[in-house]
């Protein structure tokens, strides 16, 4: 039965050929040749009808078996080839993953904004709300109501830019605020008789020759708490909390006597120098300490000017420059970089 032999030869040949087909194209050609419409197996299947009746079932069955076998072999081979081809493609698609990415230009928040936000967040945790006051101030708010009358030597602590006035009386002179403290009076007058817990950020101005350490414009942050039982130890605790959150958890602070006309008693709060850790270095002038804030208990005259009776109310206030901590933290050599807006500087933050 030559046709059976032939069938087996085709099977053998087909399997040999399949092993030789190593690309998708060769595989397709193989499929055409053996399993396609005019393929060897298909053609053999068609010859079943020409066979003697008694041979037909056996032959037909065999053809089908071989076909199934070849299809299985084909599928397995196809899987192998496609896998190999994918591997090859992936290999050729390799790139230098260290090449610079397509540029996206990021923006940067000004260093002062970042510092202020940090301060807002820390004092916000302690219940302090941000309260803003004007840059151009009345002399009365910047000085007199803060217990600093005209010609008083305490005024020497602030070199002042005065606004050119046209005709108004001397009691209404205006200036660029030399500190954020006038906001204390504004907050108190607005909020009285509520208790108060506010921070007052803002641009301040001083008639000062501009150098690497001094600017005529800078930011300050003031804090004010007024209540029926606010104390000096509360003040110390609040600033110590702040110092630990801002400068690091292990900071120790020290409090020493000082003078401000609008606080009594007045203190200054220092923390260990962040650069030398208290050993002494040029930044801390070899004292081991850096000034954190000037502070004190709100002077009774100021409380009264704000509308609060000092017999029953008390308060504390503190204030400090916003740029200084950043300058120390980042070793910023020149304060003029802040508002001269050198982008090479600002983009570093």
């Amino acid at each position: 039965m030559g046709s059976f032999d032939e069938l087996e030869q085709i099977r053998e040949q087909a399997l040999v050929d399949l092993t030789g087909a190593s690309t998708t194209a060769a595989l397709e050609a193989w499929e055409d040749r053996y399993l396609g419409r005019k393929g060897e197996i298909t053609l053999r299947a068609r010859t079943v009808g020409q066979l003697p009746q008694e041979n037909r079932p056996a032959f037909g069955q065999r053809v089908n078996e071989i076909k199934r076998l070849l299809v299985q072999a084909y599928e397995a081979r196809a899987e192998e080839i496609s896998h190999a081809e994918l591997e090859t493609r992936l290999a050729t698609e390799a790139i230098d993953v260290t090449l610079p990415g397509r540029p996206v230009t990021p923006g940067h928040l000004h260093l002062t904004t970042q510092a202020l936000r940090e301060l807002y967040a820390i004092f916000g945790k302690m219940g302090f709300e941000v309260y803003e006051a004007p840059d151009v101030e009345l002399e009365a708010y910047n000085f007199d109501l803060l217990n600093i009358p005209e010609y008083h030597p305490a005024r020497d602590m602030w070199d002042t830019f005065w606004v050119k006035e046209t005709g108004e009386g001397p009691s209404n002179r205006r200036l660029l605020r030399t500190h954020t403290s006038p906001g204390q009076i504004r907050a108190m007058r607005e909020r009285c008789p509520e208790p108060i817990r506010v921070i007052l950020p803002g641009k301040c101005y001083r008639y000062e020759q501009i150098t690497v350490r001094a600017e005529h414009q800078f930011y300050q942050l003031e804090g004010l708490a007024v209540g029926r039982g606010i104390t000096m130890t509360d003040l110390i605790g609040t600033i110590a909390q702040f110092a630990r959150m801002f400068y690091g958890p292990d900071r120790t602070v020290r409090v020493r006597g000082s003078y401000f006309p609008f606080t009594e008693p007045s203190v200054e709060v220092d923390t260990e120098c962040i650069l030398c850790g208290g050993k002494g270095c040029p930044v801390c002038k070899y004292t081991g300490w850096l000034e954190v804030a000037g502070a004190g208990m709100v002077h009774p005259v100021v409380l009264e000017n704000g509308g609060y009776d000092p017999e029953t109310w008390s308060g504390f206030a503190f204030g400090f420059g916003v740029e200084r901590p950043s300058m120390m933290k980042y070793n910023v050599q020149d304060i003029r970089w802040f508002y001269g807006n050198d982008l090479r500087f600002l983009r570093r933050f």
């Binding site: 108060i196 817990r197 000096m232 509360d234 110390i236 609040t238 409090v255 020493r256």
Partner: peptide, 25 residues
């Protein structure tokens, strides 16, 4: 009060946190 406090020594002051009603938030 200031005279008493500064000679007593601020280094002997404890830390406390404000312990009274919160202002309206």
């Amino acid at each position: 009060v200031e005279e008493v406090a500064r000679v007593w020594g601020y280094d002997r002051f404890p830390e406390t946190l404000i312990d009274e009603e919160l202002p309206p938030l």
